[in-house]
Nucleic acid binder design. Structure first.
Lengths: 209, 209, 209, 209
DNA sequence: AATGAATGAGTATTCATTCAT
DNA sequence: AATGAATGAATACTCATTCAT
């Protein structure tokens, strides 16, 4: 067997590598400027490549955006599934989830913003929106089930599990979004204190008495 | 013979009226499409007027957007101030705030989205972003002080008041944003249950002893 | 015979009066901004009337412009014809023409500019251009004939009369146009000295010897 | 291995080349239609390029216009300076100037028209107007000084040198402008005879006696 | 007649995408 | 593969003209 295969796979690796570079450079730009507000030029300037090159790795601006959203949503679900699959009590697993999920959001709020943007923004192709929201519902479902389990174990307050799940995730998302701007804004004045993971779990405490 | 005065003031009223119509039609469009993604045509089609007319009432697309953000932020602060000024225990006042603030957000999530957009999006003029974030910090401050009071009264858990405030408002915002898409998305499948106001207050419960 | 005629004629006078006011206000505006650069708003602001009113007196922007050009050209020809009909030697009549024609051009260069604009500018309806240039050729013809007469009387240099005529009128026009800007421009620095009428006639002096 | 340098300099040449093509195509269009009356489409259609391309070479319509005016004025001054620096008597140098300056104006009256437009038209940015008129005053100054010299040499009539200079240049400009329309207009009927350079100098002849 | 609001076609400019090198 | 020039559709904004009062 000759060598072409080797150079072929190397080429493939380079391609994948390039694609990743572009995506990583693109995410924060989309987050900051929104889908419609982002120009191909912005994207490729951030990636330090020539604009024309984008079209060797993606078919369109949409395509880049979709890839980012896809990855972000997939990442969220992955963590939720890991939490689900862990050992430990339901509450312990929820705590692990929040502690694993929140800090990176504080570091890279762009992904949350891009996902939000993808869901909200009509400029984004409808199929992406549908697809993404379906994933999110799955995401919520996983958390809701963990909460239910915790309630059966008596570790979690007896309220509608779905409402509790939505509340938890809304707070997580709100915080990620908030970091993006209040973080920046408050930096200028006095830094705003963002809640530690533990705070997010307070609402779940079982009732006294 | 002061006749002109009458028609003059009438004209002013009509102008104000028209401005309002445009703003009310524009808010949901901006919320759905984002600033850059919204065309003047979209705005004026929603308002059922000819596009050119917009420029008799606003100087630019920016101008319309800013007016909406301004109003939304002002409205938020107003409610917070009313809560502050109310009689009753701090917790009761916070409950009133959440019960007053949340349901309209479920009804009209567009305003929250527009504000978020204004803060996040670089396509939005920088001064608007700065101005708006300053208001938001004031908003947070009011809620934080209410929480502090509640803590002194023993009604609220002893944790960093600012973190608790940020958490509360992040959840509120996250829910408003979430309604916009998950509401719509879940409508297609099975409706998602969004938390009642009471849920938002669970995190504030004082610790069991 | 009843009275309606009287009020009827009064109405007519008012109409004519209004038309004139508009034209007089419009000429300098067109001169300064050109045809395409002038807005109806500019015109009517200068005339201190509401924009809509223009359409009671003229059918369009073109119409106003044409009326001004027409009047200006007609005025030029009138003076040339008066010079033609005068008594005195051909050179004396030419002198009268230049002395009568030039100073008002220095005072109101706008008309010369508007005529030039009408001839040059393709934004102006083609028929106006043709019509106007036909008039101008007539204008040149009158001056050329006066020069010919002067040559036969030995008062004027023996050169192609048409060339001399074109030269004279080009200078007149060039000076009118020049006043509009060099006058203004030089006012800021040191005033530029524009030629007295006599200078324009120097080229016509018969040869020495 | 300095290969990139070569292609880099080639690129620059191509850019400059393109800029020139656009300018050359644009000048007559601006001359015919005026600044406000000229559409980007007109410009680029004349240059046989797509409209969007203009913006890779100029920042705006203004920018193109300014470049043309700048070049035209600069060209005028250059010729005046060459006349100034020549050998020969003042009158001979003036004759050289007129003979060099006038015929190209007959060929390409567009530049004179564009300059006139730049000075007259308020649609043109004020700074361009000021800048250009300053140049023109310099231009006049050079000619005035040549005339003064000629007067001292007894070659030129004893009249205010500045008035003579303004007259000469007004005639030159008037002829250039005139060619643009009377040339075209008269073509349709009978050709009008435009003055030969020599005619322009007649006014300068010293007095008989 | 007079006013100023309403309309919508038109224009400068931008930007995703394609193409030549 | 990589670059950056070229294309042209799309969009904010303007302005002549019409209309309601």
């Amino acid at each position: 067997m000759p060598r072409p295969a080797a150079s072929e796979s190397t080429r493939q690796e380079l391609r994948t590598q390039r694609r990743m570079e572009i995506l990583q450079a693109a995410a924060p730009v989309f987050a900051r400027k929104g889908f419609a507000g982002t120009k191909i030029t912005d994207l490729m300037a951030a990636a330090q490549m020539s604009q024309g090159l984008l079209y060797r790795y993606f078919t369109s601006k949409d395509d880049v955006f979709i890839a980012i959203v896809e990855a972000a949503v997939q990442h969220s679900i992955d963590i939720a599934r890991q939490a689900e699959a862990r050992s430990g009590s339901p509450l312990e697993r929820l705590r692990w989830f929040v502690e694993t999920y929140l800090p990176p959001q504080y570091e890279h709020p762009e992904y949350a913003l891009v996902v939000a943007h993808a869901l909200t923004n009509e400029a984004v192709p409808a199929e992406v929106r549908v697809h993404t929201s379906r994933y999110l519902i799955e995401f919520i479902g996983i958390i809701r089930d963990l909460i239910s389990e915790g309630q059966m174990a008596g570790e979690i307050i007896q309220r509608d599990a779905e409402q509790l799940a939505v509340h938890l995730l809304a707070a997580l998302h709100g915080l990620a979004a908030g970091t993006a701007f209040l973080g920046a804004a408050s930096a200028q004045e006095q830094a705003l204190r963002f809640p530690e993971p533990e705070i997010l779990l307070l609402a779940l405490r079982p009732d006294h008495s």
